[in-house]
Nucleic acid binder design. Structure first.
Lengths: 162, 162
DNA sequence: CAATCTATGTCAGAATACTGACATGAGTCA
DNA sequence: TGACTCATGTCAGTATTCTGACATAGATTG
């Protein structure tokens, strides 16, 4: 049966699997981002958090966690560190409910600006010579995969970001 | 200017970023695989290791680590557990060099067979109604990204054709 | 032959993310 | 109003992965 080399029938052929290649691409991207952010003393997750806050000010801890694809507990630890370092601010009390709207400080924005350039360079390198049509095709194909994997769930619900 | 909502010029627009979408897709795939493997009491990394060993018997610890996109130290921890549970075997002494060729046991193969079906179902769901041409296109596009990301690190040159 | 380089396996500690749990605030519904 | 459900923030413990370090085996090089 599939006991020798060729395990392509019952299993997933790693040579041609889109899932495996997707993981490889994501791993490569993460490694490249880590290398680009290391000189700035920043991790990928920290950058993701700051970038999210830049484009969607006032996101709560849970919303940031979903946007960075980690749990809200992990994001909470990260936010506490960022708050301690003066990169973000959170009100002591929630204006409504329990959600604490987080915002970048001036220092946080400056830190993000440096990192954002490095990350954009990585993304540009990744895109390379891809044409606009190819980028659009890749975007559509990946989006389709996400939709089917999640069963048609939305990504990050964008609340009224003031 | 770019400090409010629309930070599309200096940074990376998360709404249209292929990198962000790539991370989202990988996260979705991992979550789906975890959900599929949880009933079997197996993690994604464990499955990756067993699948690699099935298709490439005799891979060493370091080779498995590269194939699963983790460090060889982490893979070593995983292999020790798999060996303890009787799913894989490693010779006590290296036949050549220091590399220890790892192989699946009968029990490991049975465990993998169950998991492999579950994972293949996830991949099929991810592919959905994609045509063969679309799959090939996605594969080629992702492969290109990997090549460019792994390629130059200091040189952002990337001789563009346009 | 000897020195050097590279790759590997492994141990130990640190960093990161996750699961479990609890209390709180808001919305829903009888 | 009161019970119920859901989402959130947070604490605590666990699990996984990473970085650093060391010794060893083979290849390379002079």
């Amino acid at each position: 049966m599939s006991q020798g080399e060729g395990a392509g029938a019952a299993g997933v052929d790693l040579e041609t699997s889109l899932g495996y290649l997707l993981k490889e691409a994501s791993s490569s991207l993460r490694a490249a981002m880590e290398a680009a952010l290391r000189p700035l003393g920043m991790t990928v997750t920290q950058y993701s958090c700051l970038e999210l806050l830049s484009q969607r000010p006032g996101l709560s801890n849970s919303e940031l966690a979903r946007g960075a694809f980690i749990t809200r507990q992990s994001m909470n630890v990260l936010l506490q560190a960022l708050e301690r370092d003066g990169l973000v601010t959170r009100p002591a009390a929630a204006p409504v409910g329990k959600a604490l709207p987080t915002r970048l400080t001036a220092r946080g924005r400056r830190t993000l600006d440096r990192a954002s350039g490095a990350v954009r360079a990585v993304e540009l390198r990744m895109l390379g010579e891809m044409t606009e049509a190819e980028r659009a095709a890749a975007f559509a194909l990946l989006q389709g995969m996400v939709v089917r994997l999640r069963g048609g769930e939305a990504t990050v619900s964008a609340p009224s970001a003031d």
